[in-house]
Design a protein around this nucleic acid. Sequence first.
DNA 1: CGTTTGACTACGC
DNA 2: CGCGTAGCCAAAC
Length: 151
Amino acid sequence: MIALPEPAKYFQVVWEIVRQIPYGQVTTFKQIAEMIPPPAGVEVEDYSRLGARWVGDALNAVSIPDEPTVPWHRVINSRGSISLPETSQGAALQRGRLRAEGVEFDAKDRVDFDRCGWEGPDAAWVAAHGLLPAHSLRKPPTDAPQQMSLF
DNA sequence: CGTTTGACTACGC
DNA sequence: CGCGTAGCCAAAC
């Protein structure tokens, strides 16, 4: 079976990436996982399946003292919504912090990745840390825009 | 020491 | 689209 070889080390990388997320922008567990190369001993296939989960574990492991240095509230799930239990205190805190940063939630309590989705760290930073380029959360520009503005 | 639960996703209806 | 389910790992019971 595949286990995360060095959780502490992996967590550190996750936190370092989270620290790069700009104010007012959000990213997903998956996007972060995709930026981190599969740990030694972990098959790529397995990693693609488990990475996001491990990122979640990493955020969950952020200690109180370190909490101010890791903007964990800017990490949400791939559906664009907060993953903490709706009734939880953490969810309220996360939503409050994001709203304070100008991130808006729609009627379904989801954010618009096209507006505030993170494009990832700049290439130089990625290379310097031996990471992989991030997949953009925003829709790729199309030649024939899906819908023209009515105004 | 077996079970349950969780800050995930992909996939099928 | 929305909701339920299956896989998976790790930590907490």
